[in-house]
Amino acid sequence: MKRQTTAVILLLIAVGMVFSALTSAMFVRRGLGGDWIALPIPALALWNVLVLAASSAVLELSRRRNSRTLWWAATALGMLFVGLQLQVWRDLSQAGFTVSTNPSSSFFYLLSSLHAAHVIGGIAALAAAASAAPLYWHAMSALWAYIVLLFRCLQ
């Protein structure tokens, strides 16, 4: 339905504003003083970009071929992503970076957990087979790639 697509676009704009605000806060915070430590992003976080991208691709395929099985496969990949994110946070805290260690880790935990919350919402939308869910899901894949890229650039 047309209005669901409109609503998802608007939702993405709102989500975009939250993440833009946090990104600009992060740049300002980083520029403030010498206490910023580059964060060693766990390799798994990078792999996770691929997991979500794969999920998006499968979802797109499912939409084109009208296949329920592929739709569920995409949803399952989304769940896998959330599971792997838990491991990312565990890796990071084992490397000595907890939420209050450094502003870089504070921002990473905040951005990644906010993103994960949005992904969980997306999984619910996929499970409900909402017609505009794929649009939202692709945006979430892109958002995770953006977050990882952001932290890579700040190293």
């Binding site: 709102a14 975009g16 939250v18 993440f19």
Partner: peptide, 14 residues
């Protein structure tokens, strides 16, 4: 509202 409240939300989280 769509453009402004997200920023307040972000600030509140921080």
């Amino acid at each position: 509202s769509l453009l402004a409240f997200g920023v307040l939300l972000a600030a509140g989280l921080l």
